[in-house]
């Protein structure tokens, strides 16, 4: 009786382990779902250099707010990590242009649009980070309401800074320049 149970266990275990050899292994390709890769519970686990640099920026901001960083140190560190973040953003965009637009969810496009539109723009310097200023902190000109610059030549939709194609109709920004 026990021996039978033992043989059943043995057969089951060996079948489980040897089956791939008999059947020939199936290559488990990486699924291309957009959520694949966001399987971490903590954003700090992301391996994206952009996110790491952005997190460092947030931390520097927080450390200054809690009084741990002096203003000079804050300035220097902020510059370094902002540069790193920008470099990473540009690298990602360059790759993104090759693969095609990764953002396919219309709801997200709307969010991004709204977010990009929320800031005021300077006629010469483009969108400004400060949302409540009247004058551009870079050149001093009066800021205008969003939508004034960098619009799509075809449909008039605002194009996020650095965007190469209109997120709404797909017209190339290059086309805008040529006209």
């Amino acid at each position: 009786m026990e021996l039978v149970a033992g043989i059943v266990v043995a057969v089951a275990a060996l079948a489980l382990v040897l089956e791939p050899l008999v059947r020939g292994g199936v290559d488990q390709g990486v699924a291309a779902s957009p959520d694949e890769g966001i399987d971490f519970a903590d954003i700090q686990e992301s391996e994206s250099p952009k996110i790491q640099a952005l997190l460092a920026l947030k931390e520097i901001e927080f450390d200054r707010a809690t009084g741990k960083l002096s203003d000079e140190d804050y300035g220097a560190l902020k510059k370094r990590y902002a540069d790193a973040a920008l470099a990473a953003i540009k690298a990602e965009e360059a790759a993104g242009a090759e693969v095609g637009d990764a953002v396919d969810d219309p709801a997200e496009a709307a969010i991004r649009k709204a977010r990009a539109n929320s800031g005021m723009s300077c006629p010469t310097c483009g969108p400004r980070p400060a949302t409540d200023s009247t004058f551009c902190s870079n050149c001093g000109k009066q800021l205008v309401a969003p939508g004034g610059t960098d619009s799509c030549a075809s449909c008039g939709e605002r194009i996020p800074p650095g965007g190469k194609f209109c997120a709404s109709c797909g017209t190339s920004v290059g086309a805008l320049v040529e006209r």
């Binding site: 291309a32 957009p34 959520d35 890769g37 966001i38 519970a41 903590d42 954003i43 992301s46 391996e47 994206s48 250099p49 952009k50 996110i51 952005l54 953003i89 690298a91 990602e92 965009e93 790759a95 993104g96 090759e98 693969v99 990764a102 953002v103 969810d105 709801a107 997200e108 969010i111 991004r112």
Partner: peptide, 26 residues
């Protein structure tokens, strides 16, 4: 402890999109 707080999945997906694109092209 998992879950709760932090960026939403949608914004995470947005933030990670570029990185994935880079990985795919790589």
């Amino acid at each position: 402890w998992p879950g709760g707080g932090g960026p939403t999945r949608a914004s995470l997906r947005r933030a990670m999109a570029g990185y994935h694109a880079q990985m795919v092209s790589g």
